[in-house]
């Protein structure tokens, strides 16, 4: 299940929903860092295409691992340091599938889903540049 929305992410509610009737739940939460005096982070996305890309990643994870549930929640719009940007949760009978699928989803989300970050420091805004390490992290899941 996919949600892309400006609403704050309720991690406790997400985990509760994933825990229903399974043996293992793994999750990743991404937070806005206050690096170098960042005061605001704004997330732009491509409505429609973003949701499709995330649905496709969830389907890939479900085809590759034995999962009983997948949840991806990504926030868009303005947010401040400490706030949650993204939540990825996976549920399975055993930890291996849940942990691996969770890592796969966040690594691939970083390179495959159309989101763009813009940071504000003081009075200036800059678009965040992609990091080569993100491409490497995503590439390790290709086979």
């Amino acid at each position: 299940m996919i949600t892309v929305s400006p609403a704050p992410i309720d991690v406790a509610a997400e985990l509760d929903a994933l825990e229903a009737g399974v043996g293992a739940v793994a999750s990743f939460t991404g937070l806005v860092r206050g690096d170098d005096g960042v005061t605001e982070l704004e997330l732009e996305h491509y409505p429609g295409a973003t949701e499709s890309a995330l649905e496709q990643l969830a389907a890939e994870a479900e085809a590759r691992w034995n999962l009983s549930a997948v949840r991806i929640v990504h926030r868009v719009g303005p947010m401040t340091p400490g706030e949650r940007i993204v939540f990825v949760g996976t549920a399975s009978a055993h930890r291996g599938a849940a942990l691996e699928a969770c890592a796969f989803l966040i690594d691939r989300l970083k390179t495959d889903a159309p989101f763009w970050k813009r940071e504000t420091r003081g009075g200036t805004t800059t678009w965040v540049e992609p990091r080569g390490t993100d491409d490497l992290a995503a590439a390790r899941w290709r086979r």
Partner: peptide, 24 residues
């Protein structure tokens, strides 16, 4: 659908242009 820049347009109805993505 994400495509390389040398992709034929075909019967494209919507073409999006953007920088490399930075979500997550």
């Amino acid at each position: 659908h994400f495509v390389p820049l040398d992709t034929p347009l075909g019967r494209a109805r919507e073409v999006a242009i953007f920088p490399p993505v930075t979500g997550g």
